[in-house]
């Protein structure tokens, strides 16, 4: 039984600047497919982060804007509050969202802003050159933790999804990954659900992706997938942390 597979309309015909094996490309494609399937390309505005995805606006065919480091949720708040009919999403990495932008994401989630955040967690700062992130694994070497992350000095990695799920405001919070096709199909459903909650004006929606960074991890793309599965998934469990129906 064969399947067809083509580039979604919401995705531009561009070769990305991402390193070989970087899963940003998969996540971009899932967002584009969902936007196509929901027929919302003409009223969607993306907010790009500072980080490896800083140039992501080149890869989509709808309105886009940059944010400064960590501020995308505040910016999306401004957009969405004055134009509630637009579909707004932010796309942020772990340095951006979980470090410099922690205040903005927590407050946007807690206010129940009706936009969607895609959070890509690859346990390292990509853009600035492989520095330690709030989500870096214990013992993981980075350019600013050359002897491995020392928990006694900098604490344990932050589980952002669990943290946001602890807020009493209703929301859709889920952690997914794109390490293998079976995960990718599930992740796409989650992204679609997240946008649907926004379209229904239900709640803030948040999809975390456990992702890879072969280049900064110093692994081949295939090794990186394996490392993420073995090291990250046990600490960052997949699944829905919270749905608005529970509240």
């Amino acid at each position: 039984m064969g399947k067809t597979f083509q580039k979604p309309e919401a995705l531009a015909d561009q070769v990305t600047h991402y390193c070989p094996g970087c899963t940003h490309g998969v996540i971009h494609r899932l967002i584009a497919e969902v936007i196509d399937e929901l027929g919302i390309r003409g009223r969607t505005v993306g907010v790009a982060p500072v980080g490896c995805a800083v140039l992501m606006y080149n890869y989509f065919t709808f309105d886009f804007m940059e944010a400064s480091h960590g501020r995308a949720p505040a910016q999306a708040t401004g957009l969405k509050r004055v134009r509630p009919d637009l579909v707004v999403f932010t796309y942020q990495g772990d340095g951006d969202l979980a470090s410099i932008g922690m205040a903005e994401i927590v407050h946007a989630a807690n206010r129940g802003e009706k936009f969607t955040t895609i959070f890509v967690n690859n346990a390292v700062y990509g853009m600035t050159g492989g520095q330690m992130a709030p989500t870096t694994m214990p013992g993981q070497r980075t350019t600013t933790s050359p002897f491995g992350r020392k928990v006694e000095e900098v604490g344990m990695p932050i589980r952002v999804s669990e943290l946001l799920a602890s807020l009493a405001t209703p929301g859709y919070i889920t952690r997914q990954t794109v390490l293998k096709p079976k995960y990718i199909n599930r992740a796409k459903k989650a992204v679609k659900k997240a946008f649907q909650y926004q379209l229904d004006n239900t709640c803030f929606s948040f999809v975390e992706f456990v992702s890879t960074c072969p280049t900064n991890w110093g692994l081949t793309p295939v090794e990186a997938i394996k490392w993420a599965e073995e090291k990250m998934l046990p600490y960052y469990p997949l699944g829905e942390m919270k749905t608005p129906e529970e509240a």
Binding site: V45, V47, M65, A67, S68, R71, A74, Q75, A76, T77, G78, L79, K80, R81, V82, R83, L86, A103, E104, H107
Partner: peptide, 22 residues
């Protein structure tokens, strides 16, 4: 209209930016 008290002046400046952007 829209009135929102942000979590900080930093965040507010970007709420302004976001609203201006549309």
């Amino acid at each position: 209209g829209v009135f929102l008290q942000g979590e900080s002046e930093v965040a507010v400046s970007y709420m302004i930016l976001g609203a201006a952007a549309v």
